[in-house]
Design a binder for these strands. Structure first.
Lengths: 148, 148
DNA sequence: TTGACTCAGTTCTGTTTTGGAACCTATCTA
DNA sequence: TAGATAGGTTCCAAAACAGAACTGAGTCAA
């Protein structure tokens, strides 16, 4: 396995890393999901260098996670909107958030929170197995090499 | 926000990136969870340079995700075992795998698979909200700034 | 109609990180 | 004694990154 071969790996975790495996990409995606969609706004919020941000936005667009949409003519300017693919990553981010709250604790409050759209109550994410309906935990599952 | 400040961010996604936000770290973690726990084995499987692997293993140990355990004396040699923290990341990896299968398709088969420990059937992960019991999707949730 | 300002980048330079290969150390085996 | 095994460390060159300056289209206000 080589870094440049990751996009063609059979392993889904490896393919995910080929898209999101760097310092900034997921944070950019998070910001666009939170409604921050313009170049300068993202740059100022993250403190990322403009040059790297420019590159990451292009990569995310090429991978189908962001879409450039004009928000004004004269001068023509674009916003970066999350696609369905990016939106479908939200549950992963939620699971990640649950993990970090348990294992990387901090005093500071979460700057954003996810609410149930109907009840407007904060969500408490957990990963379950659709087949059995039970929660997936480190002890409930078994990993084995796949022989398809 | 700066890269070096990430560990102290309130945002859980940012703190997760401070630990796992690079090319290799999550792949190393994945291998240890799949039972590959020795330096040379990880190095050969991933094709990562030894020097970077050495650094990442130290970081993962420092962050409490891996534990060095001797597997022989004379000469003293260690294996890297996933801690509870690392094991608790498995559901996140599962959610990630579900996302990649949907949005980064490939012809190649998944090299490993997750089975339910009791039924020995492959798991179909989904993220639900413990409060409402409903699946968390991009349309079921609402994101807002947190004013605690 | 000149000058300042906005936004979205690109370009430049210097530092940090990474890749690739070689080397080191302790021990066991032929 | 020579070679193999395992787990690193050291060195150099290449790539990625940070920080700052610059560009360019257009607006606005004096």
């Amino acid at each position: 396995m080589k870094w440049t071969d990751l996009p063609n790996e059979g392993c889904s975790v490896a393919r995910t890393m080929s898209v999101l495996g760097d310092r900034w990409t997921l944070l950019i995606l998070r910001d666009t999901l939170f409604g921050i969609r313009r170049f300068d706004d993202i740059q100022k919020r993250l403190g990322i260098t403009r040059h790297v941000l420019s590159d990451r936005l292009k990569r995310l667009e090429a991978h189908g996670l962001l879409e450039r949409k004009p928000y004004q003519q004269r001068p023509l300017r674009h916003e970066y909107h999350p696609t369905q693919s990016a939106k479908d990553f939200v549950p992963v981010m939620q699971a990640m958030t649950g993990w970090a709250q348990a294992h990387l604790p901090t005093d500071k409050p979460e700057p954003y929170r996810f609410l149930d759209r109907e009840t407007r109550q904060p969500t408490a994410p957990k990963v379950i197995d659709t087949n059995t309906g039970t929660e997936i935990t480190s002890t409930s599952i078994w990993v084995e090499a796949n022989r398809d």
